[in-house]
Amino acid sequence: MSEHQLRVDWPACKGHGLCAELLPEVISLDEWGYPIVHEPVKGEVLAMARRAVKACPTLALRLTLPA
């Protein structure tokens, strides 16, 4: 199964922090409240990652497949 990358649209991200709430396995927040993506998404985390992408209030989170 292929690994997905979580990518942040930085100008769109306003640091609401929902992604880190929904996906603490992969995302933490920096000292200003912006997401730090720690690793690619795979396996059972993928479904939760999709949920985090959908939940982002500014639609700033995307799942991409490596080129």
Binding site: W10, P11, C13, E31, W32, G33, Y34
Partner: peptide, 11 residues
């Protein structure tokens, strides 16, 4: 900074 990306705007 264009002041649009959080890590740049703050960092």
């Amino acid at each position: 900074s264009a002041r649009r990306c959080g890590p740049c705007l703050n960092g």
